[in-house]
Design a protein around this nucleic acid. Structure first.
Lengths: 245, 245
DNA sequence: AGCTCTGGCTTGTTTGTACAAGTTCGCCTA
DNA sequence: TAGGCGAACTTGTACAAACAAGCCAGAGCT
């Protein structure tokens, strides 16, 4: 682990612990550099991490200020339903309801960088938290990863983790579109809500570290079960609002 | 404008223009340093910006890869409905439907760091895109900014910008919770949809650069009018999924 | 008392250097 | 031909130094 990550971790712990309550000033960079016997640049990398997490605010000329004390785990939590659930203290489970190969549509070909008509794997999963159905996941996997996905246990808890362990696949980048839709009849039946009731939809495309698209998915959460949270600052975070398709 | 921002802008333009299409490699840091007559550190700051925006991916040892070519303006767009609308080519308008002072509730006192019972300003706004109502905004402003808000034109297009120009107020940090809810009867009437139809809700708290909370708001978008978009990578972006309140 | 202004403190930007660690690709060998 | 090896390349981390720019409090003045 890098030195600046250690320092960031140390400071984060101190903030979470309440050593620096909300509104308090952080020590100056020079002081921190001295305390950790590190160069100022290294300390800056550390506090930049905290700023990106929204824990501290920064203004040129003034001491850094503590803005919050909630820790957020960023990427991993956005991707792995199971990991997120575990960290929140829920018991996650899931079932594959259908899984079949087919030729990809033109729009999927674009999103997954495939040749038109190439084969893809279509998977429908229902996910539960503590037994309650909360999420319908309709995922399209690129053909090259399909065999590994088909080998997975249908009741498999964490797809992300299993794929990592079986073929070393790492989900590294993602684009996510979040909006609200009415439950269709299938959604309604699976999630045990009335047709037309509000669902939170997350559409995403995920790629490997090399930029190779792996999957695109349409996930629908039952209203009231899940919330997305973003911290942003003037200096960071590519969250934008877009017009609907 | 800082040198690294110029370089980042230049590279961003090149990517958007298609000089570096999706999947292409960016020049190495050394080459960019030479091209821009800058130190490698400066170039690194520039490409780090692009990486944070999700435009390029980074892996130690390998050339940087272009992941996307859509420009996102990050913070500003998340905050100013008017600015966002303008950048998307829409004509934004809005009306203040009600505005009244009252004592804050205990939960508001916590979120806005106020004394319990302190005065706040409650504003209900309806926002339109090209004349279509798309957003109901219920905002609670801290008492200290209330006078400036009350002086605003009820038809004011961009609250953010007006507050900046009139009192120099800058919204610098924000926390946002996004989920889906069913339209209440007031929502339904204002947005011209049926009661119970799905809405995308964004709750937020905004603070100044000093960490002083300015407002908290409950914004509800008509389904199909707006989506939120996030790009994330293993290394960045504090977006998380949370259980509902 | 209230105001201005200045000097010291703090963060922001840039350059330069060095080494660590991961990737890529060609060459060589079995 | 398939596989292993290594050299060159590329990004990541760390240190040191200098100056720019913004903030703040206290000194001094009105």
């Amino acid at each position: 682990m890098a030195r600046y990550e250690q320092i960031a971790g140390d400071l984060r712990d101190a903030i979470v612990r309440g050593d620096y309550p909300i509104g308090a000033q952080l020590p100056s960079e020079a002081e921190l550099a001295l305390r950790y016997s590190a160069a100022r640049g290294t300390v800056r990398q550390a506090v930049a991490l905290l700023a990106a997490e929204g824990l501290v605010g920064s203004r040129q000329g003034a001491r850094r200020i503590v803005l919050g004390s909630e820790r957020s785990q960023s990427f991993a939590e956005l991707h792995s339903f199971a990991q997120w659930a575990r960290s929140m203290g829920y018991r996650a489970s899931g079932t594959v309801l259908s899984s079949r190969r087919r030729r990809c549509s033109p729009s999927e070909a674009v999103r997954l960088s495939l040749e038109p008509g190439e084969e893809v794997l279509d998977v429908l999963r229902l996910r539960r938290l503590d037994g309650e159905p909360v999420l319908v996941e309709r995922t399209v996997y690129a053909g090259w990863i399909a065999p590994a996905v088909e080998r997975l246990d249908p009741e498999c808890e964490s797809v992300t983790q299993e794929l990592y362990e079986s073929v070393g696949l790492v989900f590294a980048y993602g684009e996510h579109l979040i909006d609200a839709v009415a439950a269709g009849s299938e959604d309604a039946r699976l999630l045990e809500v009335r047709r037309g009731s509000p669902l939170l939809r997350q559409r995403r495309v995920t790629t490997t570290q090399e930029g190779r698209p792996v999957e695109c998915s349409d996930d629908r959460y039952r209203a009231g079960s899940v919330t997305f949270s973003i911290r942003n600052s003037t200096a960071a975070n590519p969250l934008v609002r877009r017009a609907a398709d």
